[in-house]
């Protein structure tokens, strides 16, 4: 099976592990990630304003290309996924917004939100299946206590992202279980790490990230797993000695394909 893949800028630079293992693991599990041609940066954050058109066009182009191939569009970076999925929903729900987007982007070939947008975790859960992954695990992570960090972007806004229950999600915990490790539930798993504020206010980012890692540690976590490069950066920088790993690294390790 082939799906369209939007890697995003950070996955080509600072977060190569997230990208490389996403492709390898998917291939190993029978899904080829076909990189969208000439993709452009998603912008990192979704602008909620209804009159922000240009900032959403890169997402629309990617969605459109996936539509032309009749493939779902998968990304692994939480931020890219959030921006693309919110853009797709805005096009579906807001006809005025959709028509303005299409006026920018070849109105004769209008895009109306047809593409299915999947996060890599959803690809694993809904397309491949955690059961199947469990069967393919050669290095089960038995005995390891791993805390899932959802942050904000994977889950919210819940109505749009619709990946899981916003306040009590299970997708990453089920993923951790499928790899043979023990998930650690802690309440800050869906609280913000500080995100881009790290640029302006190191103190605020530090306060937010420390809270996440200390809460995970308090509940017995030995490592935190995330899908977002910025979360990883903030947690790593401020989280003391708590190891922060990408979901794809963990997956590759369990599947025995990590170098």
């Amino acid at each position: 099976m082939k799906v369209s893949y939007f890697p995003g800028c950070t996955l080509k630079t600072k977060a190569k592990d997230l990208d490389v293992y996403a492709r390898k693991c998917a291939e190993f599990l029978g899904v080829t990630l076909e990189e969208i041609e000439n993709w452009q940066c998603c912008g990192g954050v979704f602008t909620t304003s209804r009159d922000e058109i240009a900032t959403k066009l890169s997402s629309v182009r990617a969605l459109k290309e996936a539509k032309s191939k009749n493939q779902p569009l998968v990304s692994v970076c939480s931020a890219c996924h959030n921006v693309i999925k919110q853009t797709n929903a805005a096009i579906k729900d807001d006809a005025e917004f959709a028509s303005r987007v299409n006026n920018y982007n070849a109105p004769e070939d209008a895009y109306n939100g047809e593409t299915q947008v999947l996060h890599y975790l959803e690809l694993l859960r809904d397309v491949i299946g955690f059961d199947k992954i469990k069967e393919k695990v050669v290095n089960p992570l038995t005995g390891r206590k791993i805390a899932a960090y959802y942050g904000c972007l994977l889950l919210r806004p819940g109505k749009v992202m619709a990946m899981d229950d916003v306040e009590n999600p299970t997708i990453m915990e089920d993923f951790i279980r499928a790899l043979g490790a023990e998930p650690v539930i802690y309440s800050y798993r869906n609280e913000c790490c500080g995100g881009y504020i790290t640029l302006e206010s190191k103190e605020l980012a530090k306060a937010k990230s420390e809270k996440v890692t200390s809460n995970a540690k308090d509940k017995g976590a030995e490592a935190i797993v995330t899908a977002c490069p910025l979360c990883k950066y903030n947690l790593q920088k401020n989280g003391g000695d708590m190891p922060i790993v990408y979901i794809t690294e963990l997956l590759a390790e369990a599947l025995g394909i990590k170098e």
């Binding site: 229950d165 306040e167 009590n168 539930i185 309440s187």
Partner: peptide
């Protein structure tokens, strides 16, 4: 209270 876990009822 399942859907109001910001209040940590399940936790």
């Amino acid at each position: 209270m399942d859907k109001f876990d910001e209040f940590a009822y399940s936790q």
